[in-house]
Design a protein around this nucleic acid. Structure first.
Lengths: 194, 194
DNA sequence: TCTGTTGGTCAACGTCTGTTGGCCACCATA
DNA sequence: TATGGTGGCCAACAGACGTTGACCAACAGA
């Protein structure tokens, strides 16, 4: 993985670019959009604030570059339909535990419209297609995917952002034991009627 | 309800104080803590920014005064144990629909530590006691309350803050039909084991 | 060796922020 | 009619913000 997948030539400044992105993710994840200042990001990356502007144009561009992410959701065709719930929950948990991009995205999405738009895009492009394949009636897929995302993002919110102590202390396996049936239910159970 | 419940004397400036609080709630709910500037709040309340300082000390004090809230959760003793889930979900939905304080609290809690602390306090003082009375083993109450809050706050997040279209368009009754069993399950179902 | 490009620093700009203090108008009381 | 408090506006402060452009050092190809 030395060469990038794209054909972009290696530049001498790649290390600096990476340092900026890394610092940006950390500050956005910890502080949100407004309080993650370019000056603070530059200081953490040990470079001058003007470098951020040169490489990423402006703060919005930096944010966009910092939170590009692929959820790498499992292929629905590759797993039994009745295990989709557990697979989704454990996948989200591990993604969230070792990837601060997701926390950054959530923190920023709540107060910044570009961030919220990014989250809606991820929902549409990554979770919705999975729901369309898994749930019984494709017409219900958007609503079912929304329910799933409400439970998964709600867990991330209380555990990683608001840090409710009981939510933060729950063991991952216990979370999976509780949430997997819920998510499975939202995906495949018959519509409860109104 | 002309006289307040406390014995504080009526002041000529009470209308202004109310206008400030109202504008503050609206700005905090729409913009979050940092972007809800005192100047913007003052402009919306049609008064001078310095009045905000005189009446509420500083921005933190204004926020604290603006988001003081009682969830008015139903008394667990007054409802059948197996209807707690539905009661909680419908109560939260109506509270959230016509009270922008909750949106303000959520938006601010995500990026401001005082806001997060306030949310933890509400969780501890209002949801946790209810869980202690409803769920079978009081020792599990914190974890069960955390699960409930993850689902309820997750719904608020996707519906009112991030505004995922399918989540925002769901009919309240349909939300209740889906979420009530989940919440009921988190509160009273036997522990799923690890 | 000369030259153009690239990586990087420094100092400053205009603007916006929370916050402060001075000043004026009103109103109740004496 | 004087007087003290209350409600309100105005102008300014110091600091932080995103952003810009001038300037310097190192390296590549001729």
């Amino acid at each position: 993985m030395n060469k990038s997948t794209s054909a972009a030539p290696a530049r001498r400044s790649d290390a600096t670019r990476r340092a900026i992105l890394e610092a940006a993710r950390e500050r956005f994840a910890a502080d949100g959009y407004e309080r993650a200042t370019i000056r603070a990001i530059a200081q953490q990356a040990k470079i001058d604030p003007s470098m951020v502007m040169r490489y990423y144009g402006n703060k919005e561009g930096l944010f966009a570059a910092a939170v590009a992410i692929d959820l790498k959701l499992p292929d629905p065709a590759s797993l039994p339909r009745d295990e989709a719930g557990r697979a989704l929950v454990t996948h989200f948990l591990t993604m969230w535990e070792d990837n601060e991009v997701l926390t950054a995205l959530l923190r920023v999405g709540v107060t910044n419209d570009a961030g919220a738009e990014r989250m809606r895009g991820i929902f549409n492009d990554q979770l919705l297609p999975l729901a369309r394949r898994v749930c019984p009636d494709p017409e219900q897929a958007p609503a079912r995917a929304a329910l799933v995302s409400s439970q998964l993002l709600g867990l991330a919110l209380t555990r990683y952002v608001l840090r409710f102590p009981p939510a933060a202390q729950l063991h991952p396996e216990e979370i999976a034991a509780w949430l997997a049936p819920t998510v499975q239910h939202y995906l495949t159970a018959p519509h409860p009627g109104v």
